[in-house]
Nucleic acid binder design. Structure first.
Lengths: 276, 276
DNA sequence: CGACATTTTGACGCTGGTCAATATTGGTGG
DNA sequence: CCACCAATATTGACCAGCGTCAAAATGTCG
């Protein structure tokens, strides 16, 4: 992987507030670029933990480079993958409640994070008042992403989940509105499965199916996105017998536009009834 | 339901900061109970929306009385239930990102909420600096609860999910360490199913099964908890991918320091361990 | 009382989990 | 340098949990 082979150390060991803002994806919020505090960085080697479940919180982190996986481990040792934070993502937000981390975060690749000392938040450093709204937004985004994932897993089938995951991941890898055509997956099939609520075998099968459908080209950890649009739209591939029906053309089938004229009394029901 | 039939208006139309703290479950954090600002309340009738998806955020809310359901609706009108906020829960945290609500919240019963004006947050009212950490904690708790739910749905089978849900719900209904033995479910089977990632039929069947097992006594919306402990412990485990085979090493006390030479991808396997 | 929403119960079948065997990669030791 | 081994990935066969379709019972509201 010739990714960050360039100038790894030169990238920075400290970032200004406005840099962190941009990193988080809030370019507009940079208001006071003056003598604002600079945040230190911290490097994490692959396989090393950034935070551990139960550990008292010392800081929050914003990923600057590399990939992580965050997961919880129940008493029996089983683990559930909660996400794969990468550049621009906040790590450790679940620790603000109870001042203890509620999950593990380990680096999957060589990684670099911006350290946001907990003091800067709890110590009510009003000098840093500029980035409090920023934190709110970042944490809130965690929640939104979480809900989005729940929606994904409870709505789509296995193949569609994997497809969306790949599209999403590739999108987040390509740094600036560059969907990224080729990526090296930093996580195992099992981790993907845990994240999506599937088993590793099902993930593997989904990969094969997507490859056979011509949407991607996957070999082990190497992934080529051939049809990003189809990946994102896909609802079902489900081709065991008639996979090659229309080669080259694969668009989503017409969805059900069932908006039944349900009438009940009050306002909320309009959307309540539609369920199914 | 003769619940809040008593003195509905008398309960309060404004709350002090410390009262909100207690309501949120952070009794210790009440620091400046002096001339602190008082927050107005707002009543919501069953079936009425507290917030709507896409709507610009005007305030956050803390439920004081009653039950809500929060859900997202995709383009086709299908809805996914995200939670059933009740007394002490924060509503609207997902709106801090992008200043627009990312979900609907409708009252399932007669309800009463504390209104926390958005201004009090964005306007960086440092006069209210006391409750900023509080908000952080409350929002963070949302995330933790979310993860907990994901863990639940991806590890347990249908019956176990429903069992845990009922135990959980009854627990949250009984106000003070009172597990609550009888509750009136404010939501439909379908809503429960959406919340747990099941269909309404499966939920209904699970209810019947739990009743037949003598754990609960359920008739329509009326629910009696007969064996709270069994409900919480019940595990029909059917899902999880990893089976812990390696009986030897379970604890991964390996500190953040370099444990061993990292070959490509390994080393964190100590806790990934047993994974397969 | 009649229409509709919600719930219950049954039968059937598909998706995806489980078990199992093999292939491939990459690191280690002789 | 090559054989060996562990971890990961792929693929197949089997089957069961739960979604789907369907119908009937019960409750609710106008």
């Amino acid at each position: 992987m010739p990714s960050a082979a360039k100038a790894p150390t030169a990238e920075s060991n400290r970032s200004s507030l406005s840099q962190v803002c941009r990193l988080l994806g809030f370019p507009g919020d940079t208001a006071a670029p003056r003598g604002e505090p600079h945040f230190l960085h911290r490097r994490v080697k692959p396989g090393h933990r950034l935070v551990s479940q139960g550990e008292p919180v010392e800081a929050l982190y914003v990923v600057s480079e590399g990939h992580f996986k965050t997961f919880v481990a129940d008493e029996t040792g089983h683990q559930l993958v909660l996400g794969f934070p990468t550049r621009g993502d906040l790590v450790g937000a679940d620790a603000l409640f109870e001042q203890r981390h509620a999950s593990y975060s380990v680096a999957l690749t060589e990684a670099d994070v911006v350290v946001i000392p907990f003091k800067a938040l709890a110590g009510l450093g009003h000098g840093t008042g500029e980035f409090e709204p920023l934190l709110y937004r970042a944490i809130s985004r965690e929640i939104v992403a979480d809900h989005s994932l729940r929606s994904l897993t409870s709505t789509l089938g296995a193949e569609a989940r994997v497809a969306r995951f790949l599209a999403n991941f590739a999108e987040r890898c390509g740094s600036r509105d560059a969907p990224a055509t080729h990526v090296t997956l930093p996580m195992t099939r099992q981790e993907i499965g845990s994240y999506l609520g599937l088993t590793l075998e099902t993930v593997s099968r989904a990969f094969s199916a997507l490859a056979e459908a011509g949407l991607v080209d996957v070999a082990q950890r190497e992934l080529d996105i051939l049809d990003p649009e189809a990946l994102r739209v896909l609802q079902k591939v489900h081709g065991s017998a008639d996979t090659n029906r229309a080669p080259g053309r694969r668009t989503a089938p017409a969805p059900v536009a069932a908006t039944r004229p349900i009438r009940r009394n009050v306002t909320w029901v309009d959307m309540l009834g539609a369920a199914a």
